[in-house]
Design a binder for these strands. Structure first.
Lengths: 368, 368
DNA sequence: TGCACTTTGCCAACAGTGTTGCTTAACTCG
DNA sequence: CGAGTTAAGCAACACTGTTGGCAAAGTGCA
């Protein structure tokens, strides 16, 4: 259960087995009604016998159970298989400046426990904050069902940060956190008390994009409008981070080179334009700008689905949904773009914490 | 040598072997001076013995040769391995409106033969045009070295098109080509006369991005400024196409919502702004706009390297190189962005044809 | 009711991958 | 010139998915 490798790696038999097991699991996760071995064979391209063996291992591990029979199609009816949600769970943390949310998610994506605490990046020394988080994780883990394996802890946080090293980079106004080994310390604290070897740190927008029914293929953009404006990109079904985990800086695209000055130093950034409109209590104008940026994004990356989140969105959701859909329809009138879906993130205000746990589950189960 | 699959597929032993062989080949292609088995083992994570076996198969296939010895590091000196460039070759076609370029490339990326012909999308019935292209391919293939395997034919063309089906979509002013089975017909024509099973059709900007020393990891954007403005994206070392091969519509990002009307219907598209400046014979202003768009792109996708191409660029290359670098430096002053490289495409005016052949080579060799 | 047919899933033997343990080859260094 | 070090190969091995054959459990028609 090592950390995700970026450089190309050779594959061996163990990797082959894990890959196929993860593939079968992801297919079973995608369809709630359950699937049979033959169906899985058709979808994976593997032989039915290979699927039987793989499923046999998953049954032995308790990750999957046989769940009744399907209808006959002229012969022996199919034995249905279903993911056992209580076989594993993961902890998700939304780490904010002043507050944090810690929750426990099972394999099916059901929230088993959820707590908010007055601990945040700005509430003290990094060592103490991480210690408090570790304590919160320990409490959350106690809510895990009997026999459930705790797969790890995911932390979603505002960037800039480095996914590879698990550290923040020059967070505004918080110099003590710059380069502080957030993931490393949390991992060692938990490893001492629990059996939680896997800790992942990622941008809030990246993990929030995962807090929606999994699209194995296709491309999704999660747009987050709160204190700032950022995006999380799921390209071909996987989080796209770039080499330095800096991808998704959606808010700082210049849309008006002679526009208002942004906190980043440039002029006429999308974020500056949206924030100026919100300061004037004009969400409609902010929504229009957001829509223009979204249309640019859809066109540049051939995006299939847009998810909206963040407290500014939730304050007047219909305004934003309408404006984004309108701008896409206006700027991309061709028929092939009509299928772009625009919706609110189904996890609502918990999107970051839910997605952080989901990131761990995806990673532990192989996450194709 | 099937077509690239988008949906997740199960892996078996044959796939495992091909994956590792392709990995070793790509590492050998990346370094011209050649590498040893031990180095390859360290880079791939495989055991030295596994690499020995893999290299043994590649030697037997003639794809790799032993090329002298390296310096000793205290013990037995390393046996250097090198790709055998003449083991295989691929045909690349740049298919334009009035003219086309057909060239033959070997595994090392050396152009063995290059011809331009007065055949293009606008020069007749699709059937006749494809027939003429097939004839040109046959002639090019005759220049292949003895024993060289012809891996396939790549075609680079202006979008919109569909990589999966190998057809154009509503090309402006060329209704006969809409949905015409370009790839399918070329494949069957060649299959009858030659042994060229693999034909690929992709956007000109996508393949042009491949016409540069391979960056196995990292992200590259190729910006093409000619009659229009588009981009080819290499994300994590692989071409990113999106679900409908529409990704890379870089030129139609709106940068001035009240700006000049673009051919696409919107106002203030980057392409419209650049073209207006060029119509005024003002490349400096066009270059400044291109730079702003490039900075947006770098920030959004965490791009490592920018390549510039297209005849407008080559008309005054220094102006564009300077302007793009300046805008990136201005909009992204933080130290982590200072390493972004900006350069002209090394393949110059042949970038599309070279890249089209490279796409085939990448695909046939596994292309990680 | 009985029998042919279809479909599902498993048992056993198999081919072929990377891994492990050990040996041989080739060079540096004292 | 011998000890130490690094590179590469040989043989046995564990384990993967594949292949061929077969039992189980349904449907459908005479």
């Amino acid at each position: 259960m090592g950390r995700m490798e970026r450089r190309p790696a050779g594959a061996n038999l163990a990797g082959l087995r894990d890959h196929n097991a993860a593939l079968v699991l992801s297919l079973l996760r995608a369809r709630a009604e359950g699937g049979s071995r033959v169906q899985l064979a058709a979808q994976t391209g593997l032989t039915p016998q290979a699927v039987s063996k793989i499923v046999g291992r998953l049954l032995a591990d308790g990750l999957v159970v046989e769940a009744g029979r399907g209808e006959s199609t002229g012969g022996k009816p199919r034995t249905l298989l279903a993911l056992r949600p209580e076989a594993g769970c993961a902890v998700g943390i939304e780490l904010d400046r002043q507050r944090s949310t810690i929750l426990l998610l099972d394999l099916a994506g059901t929230t088993l426990r959820r707590r908010s605490v007055d601990i945040g990046l700005a509430s003290g020394e990094p060592e103490r904050v991480v210690g408090a988080l570790a304590k919160g994780v320990s409490q959350a883990v106690r809510a895990a069902p009997d026999g459930a394996k705790v797969l790890g802890v995911g932390v979603g946080c505002r960037g800039p940060l480095d996914y590879e090293t698990g550290t923040l980079h020059r967070p505004a106004g918080l110099p003590a956190w710059d380069g502080f080994p957030l993931r490393g310390l949390l991992e060692s604290l938990l490893d001492a008390s629990l059996d939680v070897p896997n800790v992942l740190l990622d941008k809030d927008t990246n993990v929030a994009a995962l807090a929606a029914p999994a699209a194995v293929s296709g491309s999704t953009a999660y747009l987050h409008l709160a204190d700032g404006l950022g995006a999380g990109l799921l390209l071909n079904g996987a989080v796209y981070r770039g080499a330095r985990t800096n991808a998704g800086e959606f808010g700082h695209q210049v849309l008006q080179p002679d526009g208002p000055r942004c906190t980043c130093g440039a002029r006429g950034c999308l974020e500056a334009l949206c924030m100026a409109a919100l300061a004037d209590d004009d969400p409609r104008t902010a929504a229009r700008w957001l829509g223009i940026g979204a249309a640019n994004l859809v066109r540049l990356l051939d995006i299939d689905r847009i998810l909206l989140g963040g407290h500014q969105i939730f304050a007047s959701p219909d305004v934003y949904l309408r404006a984004v859909a309108d701008q896409i329809a206006e700027h991309l009138p061709e028929p092939e773009w009509q299928s772009v879906q625009v919706s609110l993130t189904p996890a609502g205000a918990s999107a970051v914490a839910v997605g952080a746990a989901q990131l761990v589950i995806d990673s532990a189960l192989g996450g194709i």
